[in-house]
Design a protein around this nucleic acid. Structure first.
Lengths: 181, 181
DNA sequence: AGGTGCAGTGCAACCAGTTGCATAGATACG
DNA sequence: CGTATCTATGCAACTGGTTGCACTGCACCT
């Protein structure tokens, strides 16, 4: 599974506590691989058992102690191993498709509103990603290494949200001719 | 969850056994919502307990008996209920993104090959979907109702695979300038 | 004669992820 | 002053899905 490896990547860039990782996920990797704090805590513990990471307790004033994790040698080895190993290409998996397929068995107008809602949500994400692109990667052609890879992942997010938004528009357009509105 | 409802949609179109549903999923809904026979059997039993479907045992010659499921009133009600209820828009979730983000921590060339593999796989799916479109929906503008909805779902698959393929190409292009090849 | 594959259902164990809740001090809002 | 939010970690229960295996009998290939 990839969460372990996503955490290894994130911790390789910078050490951090479970909580910090959860917040980092919320605002960057998490756009492309979401994870709750619960899942992260559990996986970190499992990874420590496996010797992939180690932690040191850090006392703080005015706030709870935290466990700062860093990648161990075994973790680095595991990450390179996994990077070289093939993984299965993902399948599209979106409930909206199921709803649309069943639209004629229910309230068509409700499905229409649902598609609109999804379009808006995906369009909003698209705008957010594009803002990140403008802010963090104004000159893509100058990038290389880690920065280039980060940029390319962001590009993936942009393309995905763009195409989803376009699809919703196509659906709405096509449904407009159907039934009363 | 959507598997129940995907099964309700499929069974509304035509009754069938768990096995048949698994095969139907393999070649149509499954392009957009994959499910193993195991999962399907389990869910069908749960659905029967809930009164959403009923089954009749059908004896066959030369092959095992089968349980043919059909949608009950409660199932139809549940489906319409679910169709009107909002669901959360999906997040992008692809391990390839994690790999790319960590590419500089491992063998860049292996990641490159991996991206190529995924590109080929997605391009193949794209071609398959486009073949279905050409065969089953030569004149989209004439469609309405269930057929239109099926077509639109297929369009979603085509757009998703197209944009993923394009993204892989962009990545490969960008990585070409990096490191030895 | 023997292996593969299809049709058909199913159990058991496991893995990944979600949800709800608990704790506890600090700070900020109204 | 009280409520909400942030930092920080965690347990317990549950849901959804995967993997490996088992059994039956027919058809097809070599």
């Amino acid at each position: 599974m990839a969460l372990e490896h996503a955490l290894l990547v994130s911790l390789s860039e910078r050490e951090g506590s479970g909580y910090e990782l959860a917040r980092r996920f919320d605002r960057s990797i998490g756009f492309f691989w979401a994870a709750t704090h619960q899942q992260i805590y559990r996986v970190l513990r499992r990874m420590e058992e496996a010797g992939w990471v180690t932690h040191t307790d850090v006392a703080q004033e005015g706030r709870p102690d935290k466990k700062v994790y860093r990648v161990a040698d075994a973790g680095r080895a595991e990450l390179t191993r996994w990077l070289a190993e093939p993984v299965e290409p993902t399948m599209l998996r979106d409930e909206l498709g199921v709803k649309l397929r069943g639209a004629s068995l229910g309230d068509l107008d409700a499905v229409r509103r649902e598609v609109e809602r999804h379009r808006d949500e995906h369009a909003a994400r698209l705008a957010a990603y594009q803002a990140i692109q403008r802010r963090d990667f104004p000159k893509p052609s100058t990038l290389s290494g880690r920065e280039l890879h980060q940029y390319l992942v962001l590009r993936g997010g942009i393309r995905a949200e763009q195409s989803f938004t376009d699809w919703c528009d196509e659906v709405l357009q096509a449904l407009r001719s159907e039934g009363p509105r």
